[in-house]
Computed example of a mutant assay.
Amino acid sequence: MEDMSNLTDGDTSFLVDEILHSIFFMGKITYLSFSPEDIFHGDEKFLDYMREMYPRPFDLYSSQIPNRSPFSCVLDMVVRLSGPQEKASSQNNLQEIQNKLRELISKLKQRDNSKMLFSTTLCVSSVSGSSKYYGVSMSTHRKPARQIMVAAGCLSYWDDCVAAAVMSYCPQKRRKSYFDGTFQLPADVRCEAFSIEGQRMMVPCRSCNNLFNLETTETKTNPYGNCAETESLSNLLKKEERVKQQVQRCVSERVNDRERAERDVLKQLKQILKPYSGFTWDNSYYRPLDV
């Protein structure tokens, strides 16, 4: 990430800052608990450099929750490396992004095949004539990291419509009786997922069908909020106001108690964090200073 940051146009050091905090947090909540010193063991010179350049991740990984998993930061960096947004909409550029992600995953797997830090699926969403909006599946395949990141996405990071859809099923894994934020996308929205390593298209899982009414023949139900479609559609709705308004109109017709749904997610999040005595949450989600 540090090397890629030096190759991008404009300052992308905030992405390095963010991924450091996310990785340090993940180390904190593993059953063995890895400190930044453990992670950089054997390269103390680089550790000192990173601590000087990016002090906040070192200071706040024990008290603030990341907004997203590490590989989402990697995706943002790779998309920025691909050039202007207009160029990022081309098919050739999509292939370039896939190739770069696959190359990075291959290097990660040479060191660790636990899937703790890398995503398996890339999703691309777009509206006719618009830019492409990318997302990856959670690079936190195991509990409790995945549960924490889904909760953080719902409460702090994802577009509010996407967050509402996920909260309809989280944390109970069945749709709430008092809240339904699921929606159907307008006909001109395209949402396609790809296996990063297998280089093949993937049909949406049953969860994505339940949340966003994406057509599928798949019977598998992935954990809600885990799929690349969630992040990709969130990025789209943050930018495409017309689409967002159409989705909001659909959901606004229902009688929903969103505050209760958020309390439900927050309650579970606090319960998950309880066993980790080395992490004392200050009720904040980490934000790099330049964002």
Rank of each mutant, 00 (worst) to 15 (best):
L214Q: 02
Q91P: 06
T120N: 13
V166D: 00
T120I: 02
K107A: 09
S232W: 07
K100Q: 13
K270Y: 09
F179R: 08
Q268P: 06
S131V: 07
R68M: 09
M1Q: 14
F24P: 06
F58C: 05
L233Y: 04
L7V: 06
P84D: 15
P66W: 06
L104P: 03
A193N: 01
N93E: 12
N209F: 05
T280E: 15
K238M: 01
F194M: 00
V203P: 05
K239V: 01
P186K: 00
T12D: 15
F34C: 09
I196C: 03
E241W: 01
R260Q: 15
C123G: 04
L233C: 04
R146M: 14
P70Q: 02
S125Y: 05
Y224I: 05
M50P: 02
R206D: 00
R142C: 10
G278T: 15
P144K: 02
V265N: 02
S156D: 13
T221Y: 00
S156N: 14
C154N: 10
Q245E: 13
E259A: 09
V79P: 00
V74R: 06
D11A: 06
K238F: 09
E262K: 14
K100E: 15
P55F: 11
G42K: 03
L214I: 00
E44W: 08
Q64P: 04
L236V: 03
Y276E: 08
C191T: 13
S35H: 04
I272K: 12
F183L: 10
R190H: 06
E253G: 12
G10W: 03
V150F: 07
S130T: 04
D188S: 04
E18L: 13
K244I: 02
A152C: 01
F14D: 09
S63I: 13
T219G: 08
K244Y: 13
S106Y: 10
K270D: 08
